[in-house]
Design a protein around this nucleic acid. Structure first.
Length: 759
DNA sequence: GACCACTAGAATGAT
DNA sequence: TCTAGTGGTC
């Protein structure tokens, strides 16, 4: 099989250099993913390694999926047996097999950031620190940073600083709470795997032998535990290939240590270094703009990117009156870009998820189909988390966070009072308190979980009969579900949980549109389970639950399949490319973020993020900002981002604002680019129409309205945008409408409530 | 104990 | 603007 003839000489060298350490310094758009995929395919097809002897690690699920697809299409096989996964998924998988080697239960549960928050709030309560002096999120972030540096509570400077003392105590409490619940957070997944390989050289050698070839993507973003993990797996054979670009390091806040990539040649003196500097993605204008911005960073290695796509359209810059105007402009720009090249894609990138809503509304109003990547995650929805909690309880009833979450969902008469008496119960030692079903779980002795207290309370009848009955019913429910997990398929388990817990019944009886939506989501969860079973190499309920906990972008439902506007944060755009890229909110304090403006190191990271954003574009870049922006409901005026000023003027084209308030503060303040729209006819923004729009519901009342509601009629919904009525069905005092919307698909509405306007 | 209405606080990024 | 948490009422 000829896997290399389509590659340039440097790419080819990177693919064919299979033995020993290899460092690939890959500039943006230099075909990095392509090289890794070819390298994996080459290793497998040349017989150098069996498919399950190749390990490829990435940072995001999206990148892993992309990699797998590329390798599969190169080899013409499914590459299910290859280990191509994220760091966290790899660790979860290793720990599921080997946890007992470090005294950990195999049935650990993975706590996501919400679960972490719950634990931390509980810890704060137990310390009597509810006054808000210590914010749970801040404490968690401090703890996570310490963990990423592989430091414990003792690393906090507690001698004279009471606040640091709190962090240290909270660290201890938090660690204990997770251990008691047999839970690992995201950081623990990495740390425990490192610990596993430290404490069991035999296991380390077993996996090092197994994975004879290891590849790591985005190596510039690895943190200390990730670095050690890779070292452990490759120290004996040194067949390690890492790929990265220091200019694209954007995860310092997650503990990424640039030294890992900068010192690679020191760690592996015999390393072969390959530089990929030819860019196949962007026009010269885009590359020049991106290079000019990143050149402002002092802490970097000079790098030369070149392309044969000379010239190109200038970078467009638009300063909007406010965030609404910005969103409208973005929608217009997307429409124009997609019209000029049908079938192409445009991506709207933003610094913070909070910006997505306004942009989303703008696209919807314009009738553009779009898809949001990331953001409100599927598994973070209430109903999904509830179901997940039941599944987690079935696997590990000591998971206190899950137990608290669902013990009274749906309501079964276990309220605050009962929970208080539960908490204060003191069960007998765990050895004979747990039911036989879970006897094997308590690998390490810990303080009693809520579950063991519950078992005790029920068996010793320690509460009032009414509460006792409710608790007993819950206990047998969990036991029944646990039994199920041992004998049924994953999808069946999920279905049974929904059925036996009464969760689905409760939602069905609600008869609201919201409840129906939740039911749909739960059905989707069952389908996801089915799909998981057909795809996974060794399907298990625990594996499915892990996957959900580690999944970030299962949010596939917004927008139709053929939508070509994608919305995502700059962080999740890393590794992707689009013909047109729009970066929104280029304002001081937003991008660069306010937390970075006073700190040189953080500012450089923001600039790298800007570099990542610019280099996603193939043909066109549009940068927008808003002179005032709504924050928590009221307006704040803003200053354009310094990053805009860092792009040479000759590469830039300013788009005059269509709608600019005459009394705006802007214009007077700004020297360099203060002449927006000069020489152009300036149209002033009308006040947004605030009077209630006339709706069909109003017309129904006065009966005089001609036309009204007929299938085929074009209407506009304030949220869903333009659409066409599909069917009309009269009800007692209202009308049921089915409307197909361009942006969101078909919806069933009540004429009375949906404020439809004639379009 | 369940439900509802009110209010305070919120949001950098992702596994 | 939206949401999680709280306190009051049935």
């Amino acid at each position: 099989m000829d896997l290399v003839s389509s590659l340039n000489p440097e790419q080819r060298a990177a693919v064919l250099q299979t033995s020993g350490p290899v460092l690939i310094l890959a500039g943006a758009g230099s075909g990095k993913t392509r090289v890794i995929a070819h390298r994996i395919a080459h290793l497998a097809s040349s017989g150098l390694a069996p498919p399950d002897g190749i390990l490829a690690v990435t940072f995001t699920n999206k990148a892993a999926e992309e990699m797998r697809l590329r390798v599969a299409s190169l080899l013409g096989t499914d590459c299910r047996s290859m280990w191509i996964s994220t760091f966290h998924a790899l660790c979860a998988r290793l720990l599921r097999r080997e946890a007992p080697l470090i005294g950990l239960s195999r049935d650990f549960v993975i706590y996501d950031s919400n679960d972490q928050l719950t634990v931390m709030k509980q810890a704060l309560r137990s310390l009597g620190l509810e006054d808000g002096a210590v914010q749970p999120r801040v404490a968690l972030s401090r703890i996570s940073h310490a963990k990423n540096r592989m430091e414990g509570p003792e690393s906090f400077d507690t001698a004279w600083n009471p606040r640091e003392q709190h962090f240290a105590t909270l660290f201890t409490l938090y660690t204990k709470a997770l251990a008691d619940a047999r839970a690992l957070d995201f950081d623990d997944l990495l740390l425990k795997t490192v610990e596993l390989f430290e404490r069991s050289p035999a296991a380390r050698e077993r996996y090092a032998r197994r994975f004879g070839y290891v590849m790591v993507d985005e190596y510039q973003d690895t943190n200390r535990p990730q670095y050690l993990l890779i070292q452990a797996l490759t120290a004996s054979h040194r067949n390690l290939c890492v790929v990265g670009d220091p200019d694209q390091s954007i995860y310092k806040w997650r503990g990424a240590d640039l030294r890992n990539i900068l010192d690679f040649e020191r760690d592996f003196p015999e390393a072969v270094v390959v530089r990929l500097e030819r860019n196949y993605r962007s026009t010269q204008v885009i590359l020049d703009a991106a290079s000019a911005v990143i050149a402002k960073n002092r802490n970097r290695k000079e790098k030369r990117l070149y392309t044969e796509l000379a010239g190109g359209a200038r970078i467009q810059i638009y300063r909007a009156a406010d965030d609404l105007d910005e969103a409208e402009f973005i929608a217009r720009t997307c429409r124009r870009a997609l019209q000029s090249t049908p079938g192409s894609q445009a991506a709207v990138l933003y610094r913070t998820n909070a910006q997505s809503r306004t942009i989303e509304d703008g696209l919807r109003r314009a009738g553009m189909a779009y898809r949001i990547i990331g953001g409100v995650r599927f598994y973070e929805r209430k109903e999904i988390k509830d179901t997940l909690s039941y599944l987690r309880l079935a696997l590990n009833p000591h998971d206190d966070v899950s137990l608290r979450r669902v013990i009274n969902v749906p309501a079964r008469g276990i309220g605050k009072g009962v929970m208080d008496s539960l908490e204060s119960a003191t069960p007998a030692p765990p050895s004979h308190s747990a039911s036989p079903l879970f006897a094997g779980l308590s690998v390490e002795e810990g303080p009693p979980s809520l579950w063991s207290k519950l078992v005790e309370v029920v068996e010793q009848r320690l509460v009032a009969p009414r509460a006792g009955t409710a608790l007993a019913a819950f206990k047998s429910l969990v036991e029944e579900l646990a039994q199920l997990t041992t004998e049924s398929s994953v999808a069946v388990c999920v279905g049974k949980v929904l059925d036996r817990s009464g969760y689905l019944k409760d939602l069905r009886e609600e008869h609201s549109e919201e409840a129906d939506g939740r039911i749909e989501n739960l059905q989707e969860l069952v389908s996801a389970a089915r799909e998981y079973e057909s795809r996974a190499a060794e399907p298990s309920l625990a594996g499915f639950v892990d996957q959900l906990a580690l999944l970030s972008d299962a949010d596939e439902e917004a927008g139709s399949r053929d939508s070509h506007v994608l919305m995502m944060t700059l962080h999740s755009a890393k590794g992707l490319e689009f013909p047109t890229v729009i970066i929104a909110g280029l304002e001081e304090g937003l991008f660069p973020h306010s937390r970075a403006v006073d700190d040189d190191a953080e500012l450089e990271e923001e600039r790298r993020l800007c570099y990542v954003g610019l280099t996603r574009a193939q043909r066109a870049v549009v940068l927008t900002s808003a002179a005032r922006r709504r924050v928590f409901g009221d307006y704040q005026s803003t200053e354009a981002s310094r990053f805009i000023d860092e792009i040479p003027l000759e590469l830039v084209e300013e788009i005059p604002s269509r709608a600019f308030a005459a009394n705006s503060l802007y214009g007077a303040q700004h020297g360099r680019r203060g002449d927006y729209g000069s020489g152009q006819a300036r149209t002033f923004r009308r006040e947004p129409r605030r009077e209630e729009p006339r709706t069909y519901a109003d017309e129904d009342e006065d009966q005089s309205a001609p036309g009204g509601l007929k299938p085929g009629r074009r209407v506009t919904h304030p949220l869903f945008g333009p659409g066409t009525i599909v069917s009309v069905e009269p009800l007692d005092d209202d009308t049921k409408l089915v409307v197909r919307f361009a942006a969101v698909g078909t919806k069933t509405l009540r004429a009375k409530y949906a404020k439809l306007q004639p379009a």
